[in-house]
Simulated assay, not measured.
Amino acid sequence: MAAASTALRPLFLPHLPIAATVPFRLHPPPLLLPLRSLRISLPPSRSRLSTVVFAQSNLFKVVQTSWRIGKDVTEAGANLVPDSIPRPIARIGIITVAVTIALFILKSFVSTVFFVLAMMGLVYFVFVSLNTDELSIVASSPHPTRRKH
């Protein structure tokens, strides 16, 4: 009987007893719990809704991941600096260079967007000023879809 139960044990869980390998369903928790069920399901000490919502927020995860990547990039950049320069000064230099590059890219993007918007406004202004006679005829007619020739 022991050989049969050992053969039935899943291969990926060899260290667990047989009782632990009985299948059962685990339902993943919803992303944001309703207020009523959150207060009922959590003990009073942990029922702070703002903490739970903040921890489940995607923005918080994005900020955490960005901070971790920034730290890793700073450490990798500081490792490229010669050892004769102290590590804190190397990190500060790498951060300064990275922020300068990021601000340059942001400035370029923003100036490009404003240039495109200004050109669109200029083209629209020229179009309206060159087509004032056609626009006034359409605006003065009782039925804008019917034009008098």
Results as ranks from 00 to 15, higher is better:
I101K: 09
P34N: 14
R9F: 02
H149M: 08
T51Q: 10
T132H: 04
D83R: 15
L42W: 03
E75K: 01
D72Q: 09
I105P: 00
S57H: 12
Q56A: 05
V116I: 15
L122M: 10
L38M: 13
F109H: 14
I101E: 11
L32T: 07
T100H: 05
P82H: 08
Y124Q: 14
L13W: 09
I92A: 12
T96K: 06
A19G: 05
K148Y: 11
A3P: 02
P44R: 15
F125C: 05
I101S: 06
V52K: 04
V52Q: 08
I95T: 01
R91Q: 15
S111E: 14
I105K: 04
M119Q: 13
K107N: 09
V53F: 00
K107G: 06
T112I: 04
T145D: 10
A98P: 00
P43L: 08
A139C: 05
P34L: 07
T51E: 12
F24Q: 14
S108P: 00
K148V: 09
R39G: 05
A90L: 04
M1K: 03
S111T: 13
L103K: 15
A78E: 00
T100P: 00
A118T: 13
T132F: 03
P44S: 13
A102V: 04
Y124H: 10
A78R: 00
N58V: 03
T145W: 13
R147D: 02
N79Q: 14
P43V: 03
R87E: 07
P88N: 06
V22K: 10
L33H: 03
L31G: 13
A90T: 03
A76W: 02
S57W: 06
